[in-house]
């Protein structure tokens, strides 16, 4: 039982990381109908920004704010440089452009900061809490907490605010939205900024656990992408549930079946979904929307 609880906690923790990155995938997909393959690199860039600020001696909270502001700026540049020029083309050139952008981001950081992985201290001084037989890593607790908050925030933002509704309208039908006086390009700009900040947040939160390295983004993004498909592409709740499910499944699969095939379980679940339920867990709601 102790073992199960420990595994469950870790699974949810790592799953929450996937969920955060998956959320970024989903938001951009809903707004633009393309998958942004640079989403993982957003996480990596934010973690490096954070490391640089902390090394400069800035307080942790200020570094955090600067890193997220930097991500907002990158979201703007990304939208103007990668998406906007190709917005009237089919989805394929845009997707390839995002892959190109992800390679550019990774190698830019490599060129500027060098290849050495870095250590980023966690938000809390205590590394974790021993709760009975289960050890709760404080950084994972924070990640889970932030994920819950973000789910609530997203619900409130998209369902209760005018801006959120405008964003939803844009993602559902761009022509109709623009007929109603909504500036589609502004809405898409906001979506890119929000996704970059979300991806950045995930990167900063996960950095103390996984260390800060050039390839940290791509490993997480691959799983997050799988989580997005499992949850149902284009659904916010789906991204969260898909991420958490993936984290728990691979952790238990590793513990009870085979550690070397841990990544295999994640992708086996992905394949099963693609074959038997390609629309994902929450697929039907998306179909209704469309």
């Amino acid at each position: 039982m102790d073992l199960v609880l420990q595994l469950l906690f870790t699974g949810i923790g790592i799953g929450a990381v996937y969920a955060l990155v998956a959320l970024g995938f989903v938001l951009i997909f809903r707004a633009t109908n393309v998958v942004n393959f640079a989403q993982g690199e957003f996480s990596m860039v934010a973690a490096y920004l954070m490391v640089v600020c902390v090394e400069l001696g800035l307080p942790y909270w200020l570094s955090f704010v600067i890193a997220l502001a930097g991500m907002a700026l990158i979201g703007v540049i990304f939208n103007l440089g990668v998406y906007y020029p190709l917005r009237h083309r089919t989805y394929l050139p845009v997707i390839i452009a995002t892959i190109g952008a992800s390679i550019l981001l990774a190698n830019s950081v490599l060129a500027i900061y060098g290849p050495q992985p870095q250590v980023l201290q966690g938000w809390f001084d205590t590394p974790g809490i021993q709760l009975g037989p289960v050890y709760l890593d404080s950084q994972y607790l924070l990640i889970i907490g932030v994920t819950i908050l973000l789910v609530l925030f997203n619900f409130w933002f998209f369902e209760k605010t005018l801006l959120g509704k405008k964003l939803q309208a844009t993602s559902q039908d761009k022509e109709m939205a623009s007929l109603l006086g909504i500036s589609v390009s502004t809405m898409i700009m906001i979506t890119f900024i929000y996704s970059a900040v979300l991806g950045g947040l995930a990167g900063i939160l996960v950095a103390p656990v996984l260390f800060v390295s050039i390839q940290m983004g791509s490993t997480i993004a691959l799983k997050a992408f799988a989580a997005t498909i499992i949850g149902g592409f284009g659904d916010v709740a789906g991204a969260i549930v898909g991420g958490l499910a993936l984290g728990v499944i691979e952790t238990f699969g590793a513990a009870y079946i085979s550690v070397p095939y841990k990544d295999g379980f994640a992708f086996l679940v992905l394949i099963a979904f693609l074959v038997f339920r390609p629309q994902g867990i929450f697929g039907e709601r998306v179909a209704e929307k469309a």
Partner: peptide, 17 residues
């Protein structure tokens, strides 16, 4: 005798083993 795949983000199952 426990193997693991490179670039794992989490080693909890290995540690517990």
């Amino acid at each position: 005798d426990q193997g693991y795949a490179n670039q794992s983000q989490d080693f909890t199952p290995v540690v517990l083993a």
